[in-house]
Design a protein around this nucleic acid. Structure first.
Lengths: 348, 348
DNA sequence: AATGGTTACGAAAACGGTTTCGTTAAAAGA
DNA sequence: TCTTTTAACGAAACCGTTTTCGTAACCATT
């Protein structure tokens, strides 16, 4: 094993001091051209590369960003992550990922671990459990230490930090508008069983859109589904007992599952029933029929989050001043596909 | 901003030396019970947490693992990543992810960056470009420095390291066997246009299975498709001009796209034509009909890779001895769904 | 009284860099 | 010739830990 060569090694070999080597490698004019060239040549020859850890310790800057997300096997988070990684990497930052698995404890543990010098800042989406507990002390601890934090998608107002969110409520309204304009009258909502911030906002948008159009909001047209396990019976019963001609789903999976069951029951999409989902992922693009969807532009979201974070990492700001923090809004956009009616143009 | 408290701070406040504080916090009996308790109480009060970077510098161990994958928005890599992250996190390791984007240069740059002290070892899947170039000097450089490396899925024999692979050839054979046993006679292969190690292995398995059953291998029944852009015409023409009653696809996407086009052309699945894909992802589970698939058990793969890596990181081994390295084989397993015929039991 | 053994702590080196502040010797100015 | 500048380099502090090696004070032996 050829061990890594250090400044000390070079200094010893060339019989100069460590400081001279350091300066020479940074092309300091303080060192004579002769010595500089000799040292640089030697360093190149032995493939000298400065030790990141030592530099981090000295500079108190790691060029690492901590990303904490509830789940990596989830198309939306994955696209956001790609946005973060691309942007950050472009500026020489690396990304450390921790998966909270929707668990409050894991979130806390991972944050505390990383906060002790491993990263320069955090980008995260809150776990479901954290949102349910409504406990943000771990976030506050971090921000109080002066570590910048950017929340995206699943956010809270309780912590002083930057935020990147989607116009969920308006997007849901837009989706319902679209359904109504295409002639649908009774629109159901598929949402999550457990409380999630964004589901809630989308549900509010759903309700507001109905009211705007003078349609009755009917609590019984809301189907609450569990995340992990398919519950076909639940959905099937809903289809059998309720009367509706369109579905807005707060995510992609519920919509796809719904379409499948509807088709099995002989319903035609979009003839008998239309579907619109949130989170425009692979499934929406490849389902049969293809699923109309509110695209959340995850990659853009990630890039914006990374930009906000690095901005804070690299510049001083007044932590106590609320004006130091911004909330950027990403606008979801409707991608109309087969599940809501004939397409004017060919499938995107 | 309440700055982080250091050993030095505590030492100054309590009027003892730094060494005493350090020892007291590790409960060393060298320090009197009195002093120990006083120091520990003080540390707890001020929420002292040791600085990870300083410890890394001292110990020459970061407890960070570098993961380099071609693409994060790809279900298979994502599941592998989850396996890695879970296992590693359980042992107190963090994971730094870099995405090579199938680019040789990015792979090299990211590796070199991380290799300078940021990580204790690498887990990676080679980029397409790297495999095409067949240039593995960046990997060799890393292993020669004594940094352990584990390759998974997209691997090479050119580098001394651990490997985790899938029995691609056998899996493809098994899939073809299954198709033949279900009565199919003329089986087409959908594969990638560009050279990818695993596509190649699967194609070999396809061919061997045909020969084993005494069926003619027909080069013209192989459809080579580009990755990024949908080329409906290409597939459509293939369906029109060729005669076949089953398709084995080296990935999920090609199979799904194929099913879609087949259905549009009025073909019935699996009546007229059966489909089996590789990479059992979301699409396979949710397509209509659901797609039979060779599951690659990504999460297990990730866990095994992490286990191999951490084993090497934490223990000495003889780098020059080929026997130090192992190749673990993950067996793909067939998940039969609707696209290959009626299911004996209900959909998993 | 001289020796040995504990106990409880501190000094200092080390990890691998960066940076400030000397210091020396030669060149330049008076 | 004496003083001042400047060029070229080194010593040492520092980042925050860990760990080895002293060492002072005290007690117990003989």
């Amino acid at each position: 094993m050829r061990r890594k060569v250090t400044l000390k090694d070079i200094a010893r070999e060339l019989d100069v001091s460590i400081s001279t080597v350091s300066k020479a490698l940074k092309n300091s004019t303080e060192i004579s051209r002769d010595t500089r060239e000799k040292i640089q040549a030697f360093a190149r020859l032995y493939n000298y590369k400065p030790n990141n850890i030592a530099i981090s310790l000295k500079n108190k800057r790691t060029r690492n960003i901590g990303v904490i997300i509830p789940d990596i096997v989830h198309h939306f988070f994955t696209t956001v992550f790609r946005g973060i990684e691309k942007y950050a990497n472009g500026l020489g930052y690396n990304v450390i990922v921790c998966v909270s698995d929707e668990s409050f404890n894991k979130e806390v543990i991972n944050m505390e671990l990383l906060a002790n010098g491993s990263i320069d800042g955090f980008i995260m989406a809150l776990s479901a459990e954290t949102q349910a507990k409504n406990d943000y002390n771990h976030l506050k601890q971090v921000t109080e230490q002066g570590i910048p934090l950017v929340l995206f998608d699943r956010v809270t107002e309780e912590v002083q930090c930057d935020r990147v969110i989607i116009n969920d409520e308006e997007a849901a309204m837009e989706a319902v508008d679209f359904l109504i304009e295409s002639g649908k009258k009774k629109i159901a909502l598929f949402t999550t069983e457990s409380y999630i911030n964004v589901s809630d906002k989308r549900a509010r948008g759903y309700r507001r859109a109905l009211e705007k159009h003078g349609l009755r909001f009917d609590e019984s047209l809301i189907l609450r589904l569990p995340f992990q396990f398919e519950q076909e019976d639940l959905t099937r019963k809903f289809f059998q007992n309720k009367d509706f001609d369109a579905v807005l789903s707060v995510n992609e999976i519920f919509a796809i599952r719904g379409m499948r069951i509807a088709q099995k029951m002989g319903l035609r999409i979009p003839g008998d029933i239309s579907f619109i989902g949130f989170t425009d992922g692979l499934l929406s693009r490849y389902s049969i029929p293809t699923l109309s969807s509110m695209a959340q532009h995850g990659e853009e979201m990630g890039a914006v989050a990374a930009r906000l974070l690095i901005e804070k990492v690299e510049n001083d700001y007044d932590e106590t001043d609320p004006d130091s923090y911004t909330t950027e809004l990403i606008k979801a956009s409707l991608i109309a596909r087969e599940s809501t009616g004939p397409l004017p143009t060919r499938d995107q």
